[in-house]
Design a protein around this nucleic acid. Structure first.
Length: 616
DNA sequence: GCAAGGTC
């Protein structure tokens, strides 16, 4: 019997369906001589410190450098503390039994570093010796699955990928566990002051932006606005120059030849420029872009959006949610027309779905090379029933984005009019000629914000028009805004883009900080540690967060570069480089950061603890 | 009591 193991039940079900296997058992599916089982993500993790004899938090134990790492069942929190997650224990037992009966194992965990780790940890934990082959596919259409099974790879082809995954895992443990204990112990408080490769740079970003914003000194400057009239249609133009003092601006405003000053037609049209601009549709959503959009439009937290999506996914209404790709392959694209046709009766965008049925689809979101472990989020075509209002919101964002992504370009005309009257003034306006993809949601709000003159009247160069109003505008330079969940998610995705070292920047180009699946959890961790808090839509550091930032801000652990550096080394390991030298470096860094935190953490001691320390 | 990674 061959056993196929997937990363999650949904994938195992898809594969079983292609084989025509449909005998459902507890924890697996049987049929056609195969058994299809699954994990629930990581069932196993690197064992916590106490399993190496580091029973209590103590400076004497630091740094904790286990000779050999152990694996233990994923833990879950109960009222009696951390216990083995019962669902993981049960599934592991199922897998164990199936592996014992197997002649061969086919590994169908996600095609990536963590997918490899999920399987190998299970395989080694169960001390399994059965031969295994690797299924390597990035979409779950019937064709992709069949094709993948015709091209099964030897399991050993992925040994170096496992090595890089294992190194990632161990390095995060070593640096995170040790730095956390060191800082917490040194601070003398009883609270946990956690540090890690991802959470600490994230905290640093929030704190540094907060301080930059708070210490920003706004500069006041002035501009002059005039109102020009063309046959009863007024438009506003702003001085091209800005002025340092109010007096300068008043000088300019006084020179404007407006009607009130006795000039019937004092506005001289210098030039009119009208340029058409094509605006291609947005790409399909990945998790992060959807979280950002839901936060902007509805104020949903990243965590809440993920949980709504998970509900929809479990209800088989949307495809896999924790994807980092905004593209689909040609195989999935082939199913898009029929997916779109399911929305022709939709109350909001039925009309656009019907229209798309009659036209050539835009293929901007179709690129198999940019599909990684999973493709972009799509509706499945199943009919939703009884969604909560928030679930409906998210579902509509997924479905609506699909319609947008395959729709036509939006064609705009951007008009700029230059007016001379004492000084030079400019008016600009945007007119949408063909809505294209923008017809789907028909949201005008977003654009109106920056385009005050949505449309401008037709004028010709050389025309002399009356100026019906004029005023001095007082303006201020603005600081970069504080982070909110949307802008932070974006920043995490693109973290590393500004790294100077080209190699490190390259190593991070496809990753950023954290992964789509973990970014929401990182934000929640920082909140749980009392490092940051939500205030209205913003994420602001607390006193604790700022003082931890003060201690670590110049350390490597607070820089996105650390991830870039690791990614570069991990990629080298994946292509065959030695594991030992990277492990040596990590051990050395663990010693360094532990010493540093034990020293620097003392500055976090509360006044009483500090006095006690002096007495002692 | 602690990381980051995955998922119900």
């Amino acid at each position: 019997m061959k056993v196929i193991i997937a990363e999650k039940p949904s994938v195992a079900r898809e594969i079983a369906k292609v084989f025509g296997a449909n005998t459902k058992k507890d924890g697996y599916i049987e049929g056609k001589g195969y058994t299809f089982t699954w994990a629930f993500g990581h069932l196993l993790q690197l064992a916590p410190p106490q399993e190496y004899g580091y029973y209590r938090w103590s400076v004497q134990n630091l740094p904790m450098l286990p000779q050999k790492f152990k694996l233990s069942v994923r833990k879950t929190k109960t009222k009696d503390g951390m216990v083995d997650d019962p669902s993981a224990v049960k599934q592991l037992n199922t897998i164990k039994t199936l592996f014992e009966e197997a002649s061969e194992i086919i590994v169908a965990t996600d095609a990536g570093r963590e997918g490899e780790l999920i399987f190998r940890y299970i395989y080694y934990y169960l001390k399994c010796k059965k031969p295994f082959k690797r299924l390597w596919i990035s979409s779950q259409t019937d064709e992709a699955i069949k094709d993948g099974f015709r091209n099964l790879k030897p399991g050993s082809d992925y040994d170096t990928l496992f090595n890089s995954a294992h190194c990632r895992s161990q390095s995060d443990w070593l640096v995170g566990m040790n730095a956390t204990q060191a800082l917490s112990l040194a601070s003398g408080t009883r609270s946990v002051l956690s540090l890690g490769r991802v959470q600490t740079p994230t905290l640093a970003m929030i704190c540094s932006r907060y301080l930059e914003n708070k210490n920003f000194v706004p500069q006041i400057y002035y501009q002059v606005a005039i109102q020009v009239d063309k046959n009863g249609t007024a438009f506003r133009a702003i001085s091209v120059d800005s002025y340092k003092t109010k007096a300068d601006a008043e000088g300019v405003v006084n020179a404007v030849e407006d009607v009130a000053s006795g000039y019937a037609q004092g506005g001289n049209i210098l030039s009119v420029e009208a340029k058409p601009r094509k605006e291609p549709p947005p790409l399909l959503h990945d998790l992060s872009s959807l979280q950002q959009e839901a936060n902007k439009r509805r104020g949903f937290t990243a965590d809440y959006t993920l949980s709504l999506l998970q509900n929809l996914y479990e209800g088989k209404l949307v495809t896999y949610p924790r994807t980092g790709s905004r593209y689909i392959g040609d195989d999935v694209f082939a199913t898009v027309p029929s997916l779109i046709s399911k929305f022709t009766d939709h109350s909001n965008f039925g009309k656009q779905a019907t229209f798309l049925g009659t036209t050539k689809l835009n293929k901007r979101s179709v690129n198999a090379k940019k599909v990684t472990d999973h493709h972009a989020i799509l509706p499945t075509g199943e009919t939703p029933r009884q969604l909560t209002p928030d679930q409906q919101t998210i579902y509509d964002m997924v479905a609506g984005r699909m319609l947008e992504a395959f729709h036509q370009d939006c064609i705009k005309e951007i008009t700029k009019i230059a007016v001379q009257s004492g000084a030079k003034f400019m008016a600009s306006g945007t007119v949408i000629n063909t809505a294209g993809w923008r017809a789907v949601f028909n949201d005008k709000d977003e654009e109106k914000k920056d385009e005050e003159n949505a449309s401008l009247p037709k004028v010709e160069p050389g025309e002399q028009l009356p100026i019906t109003n004029k005023a001095v505008l007082e303006k201020q330079t603005k600081p970069k805004p504080m982070y909110n969940e949307a802008s932070l998610l974006k920043a995490l995705e693109t973290a590393g883009k500004e790294i100077e070292d080209e190699e490190l920047r390259y190593a991070m180009k496809d990753s950023g900080l954290g992964t789509p699946a973990t970014r929401a959890a990182i934000i929640e961790t920082l909140i749980k540690r009392d490092y940051i808090k939500r205030e209205k839509k913003n994420l602001l550091p607390t006193e604790v967060g700022l003082s931890v930032y003060g201690v670590v801000k110049n350390q490597q652990i607070a820089q996105a570069e650390l991830t870039g550096n690791w990614e570069k080394r991990l990629e080298e390991i994946r292509s065959g480089a030695s594991v030992a030298s990277f492990q040596q470096e990590i051990q050395q860094y663990t010693r360094t950061i532990t010493t540093e935190m034990l020293k620097a953490g003392a500055s976090l001691r509360p006044p009483k603890a500090a006095t006690d320390a002096v007495k002692a």
